[in-house]
Design a protein around this nucleic acid. Structure first.
Lengths: 203, 203
DNA sequence: AGGATTTTAGGACAGTCGTCCTACGCGGTG
DNA sequence: CACCGCGTAGGACGACTGTCCTAAAATCCT
């Protein structure tokens, strides 16, 4: 049963390398070296490089799913949950400045490669989108819940891309603050009743 | 002097291919085929693949610079110029849905590759940032001009990334509208005096 | 301890990559 | 017409890629 442990190690190393160097640019040999494993032996655990990619995507999906479930347990208020999501870019600022958003960069790369696993990678976006939509719905914004969810996602992608390009930490905090302020318009809680006229322009 | 014409053709084909397939994924052979040129003959015009990349980046810089200069000629109002920038994502929606933002995706890829031309590619972001900052300064937001410029850039990157991932055209138009509304807070023109309390959260 | 099974190492493979070299074709000038 | 030089074609090169194969090693079970 040692195989499973090795498999996990491979997936973890590949995850890190795909994130830092990109999928195509990460060679089989590089992963092998990171795990201290023979190159040819890979095919005992995976039948192709695509297979490793799929395992990495599945692992990320599982990980993010667990994260969202944990948030739901820790935060009863949907508004607090959304704030938690917004805080991701601040909490992970170091990685984001160095390598960008794991979801956005991988999706973009796989799209350019015309890789068949693109849809699976897109599932990560859908996971967040669905979860955010659910939180906005609970806040009473049923009609516009999906549009609001997409707006929050766009915020995180925009901030991640620019923080990566400019290595600017202050920028991250400014935009996170901006987003929190915008969110307060849609949080029923301490902010009073929610607006009924739909999403408005604002920071 | 036929060499220069061929060189231009190569740069244009490489530009398109780098945008659609990514830099690393675009082989020398692919560019050669697109230009109907022999593979080995490339090195008469460029001394390496990096060299082509640099030429592509320089061409894009020149092109975008010209675009901004044209806008300055066509629009006297700085607010109108900024709106023009925001409209890019709507005007180029087809390409953006299919291939993402040319600037953002290239910068991200070169960063992952650890490519030395990353800084030159980042110059495209800086070009827009500086130009936007200048427009906001003219609108009277001297202190926060750079932060506002970055916010507009983040908007465009976020929208481009998600529109690319979800192939959602309605989303683009919704977010562009949102951004126009947000911009109206900072446009001195028809909107009354500009706010003095700095950027606020909002769409 | 011994045999069966799981896991590993390391090299062979065909293909592709960026790069370089050399010889050929075409144009205008003397 | 002969010539010279710019532009081109096409192949050779070494390095690297993902993949596959086979033999050895490690592990587990009785």
């Amino acid at each position: 049963m040692k195989a499973e442990a090795t498999r996990t190690q491979i997936v973890e190393a590949a995850d890190r390398l795909f994130y830092r160097q990109g999928y195509e640019h990460t060679s089989f040999a590089a992963i092998a070296e990171a795990v201290h494993i023979s190159r040819g032996n890979f095919y005992y655990h995976f039948k192709s490089k695509d297979d490793i990619l799929r395992a990495v995507i599945a692992a990320r999906l599982e990980d993010r799913r667990r994260m969202l479930t944990r948030w739901e347990a820790e935060e009863a208020d949907p508004a607090a949950r959304i704030r938690r999501f917004v805080e991701i870019v601040a909490a992970n600022r170091a990685d984001i400045q160095n390598y960008g958003c794991p979801v956005g960069t991988m999706t973009t790369e796989l799209a350019k490669l015309g890789h068949p696993a693109l849809d699976e990678a897109g599932g990560l976006f859908t996971l967040f989108r669905t979860w955010l939509r659910e939180q906005f719905t609970r806040l009473g914004h049923r009609e516009q819940a999906d549009a609001l969810a997409m707006h929050v996602l766009a915020f995180s992608q925009g901030v991640a891309t620019l923080a990566h390009a400019f290595k600017d930490e202050d920028f991250i905090h400014r935009e996170v603050q901006r987003m929190h302020h915008w969110l307060s318009r849609y949080s029923a809680g301490a902010q009073g009743t929610a607006p009924v006229d739909g999403p408005r322009a604002g920071t």
